[in-house]
């Protein structure tokens, strides 16, 4: 029944993930030699792919405004730097961020659906999402119900994502799998397929609240799911690893992995993002190191 499989994930066609193979392959991406000029371009690209994030109980209007200013003025001493892709905040902060970012191309992403646990009723999640959209969010980061997923209630997870997607309207939907709670790579692969078929625009690894967050092997599994989905349906899905990527070098490794798994079509902030907060400063420090030839210190960069 090919007509059905085009709209629903068919786990009979899902490859079993070779645990050892995936980790070996992911480790291989860290061994590429990147020459200075490419490195500088790669670092600027990485900077432009960052979703600068603050998701804390103690977030205030002031903190969000400060972060928005940083998003637009990463390091004014360095001429010609790009901005980050988006600011990622709780729904209650969307209006503040939207106002602060007026006139820039930086988008506002909101985590909705009872982030980070996702343990709330469907009704609450939908209203959470609609609230964020009404406040002006350009993108919604939702979490899947991991408990239901692990119980095997895949239909529940699928329907929930589809419902949120509908509530999003034109906003792009990022679906957080929270891979740190999914236990196996096979589960990650399955959850990726469910999310993509249910209407996700992005699939995202983690909330950043659970360890381990984004790792290279887990991201590779998701990138391969995106690739297979693209071959099957012709639809491009974007990817966002989040949490735990705080070094410029790691960001470059991820870019190599994207390039070698999905190709250059995915190398823009429309199709790939980093969910991070401290990554931006490390990338800036490396860029300044390349520009001045001198190792940098955190003291000379803005607080994040």
């Amino acid at each position: 029944m090919p007509a059905v499989t085009a709209f629903l994930p068919d786990f009979r066609n899902t490859p079993q993930i070779d645990h050892v193979g995936v980790e070996e392959r992911a480790a291989r991406f860290t061994k590429r030699s990147i020459k200075t000029e490419s490195k500088v371009e790669g670092l600027k690209l990485a900077l432009n792919m960052i979703d600068l994030t603050t998701l804390e109980g103690k977030d205030t209007d002031g903190k969000v405004k400060q972060l928005c200013y940083k998003a637009m003025h990463l390091h004014d001493a360095y001429p010609g730097l790009p901005t980050v892709a988006a600011i990622c905040v709780y729904p209650s902060m969307v209006a503040v961020a939207k106002k602060a970012l007026q006139g820039s191309n930086v988008k506002v992403a909101a985590v909705a659906t009872a982030f980070p646990s996702g343990q709330a009723s469907r009704d609450v999640k939908l209203r959470d999402t609609k609230f964020a959209i009404d406040q002006g969010a350009d993108e919604i980061d939702m979490v899947i119900s991991r408990g239901k997923f692990l119980q095997g209630e895949y239909n529940f997870v699928f329907d929930e994502i589809a419902a949120i997607k509908e509530a999003c309207g034109n906003a792009r939907l990022k679906v957080i799998l929270e891979t740190g709670e999914l236990v196996t790579y096979d589960n990650v692969r399955r959850a990726s397929e469910i999310a993509m078929y249910a209407g996700a625009d992005f699939i995202k690894t983690s909330t950043g609240k659970i360890q381990p967050a984004a790792t290279m092997p887990v991201t590779l599994v998701m990138l391969e799911a995106i690739r297979d989905f693209y071959y099957r349906t012709g639809k491009k899905i974007a990817m966002k690893p989040a949490g735990g990527i705080s070094k410029a070098k790691a960001a470059l490794h991820y870019l190599v992995m994207v390039q070698e798994t999905l190709g250059t079509d995915w190398l823009s902030n429309e199709w790939f993002r980093f969910g991070a907060s401290s990554l931006a400063n490390d990338v800036l420090m490396q860029l300044e190191k390349e520009r001045t030839g001198v190792y940098q210190a955190a003291n000379y960069f803005s607080i994040d």
Partner: peptide, 8 residues
């Protein structure tokens, strides 16, 4: 040189 010019 690096001992002397490292900003940190």
């Amino acid at each position: 040189k690096y001992f002397a010019d490292h900003m940190d």
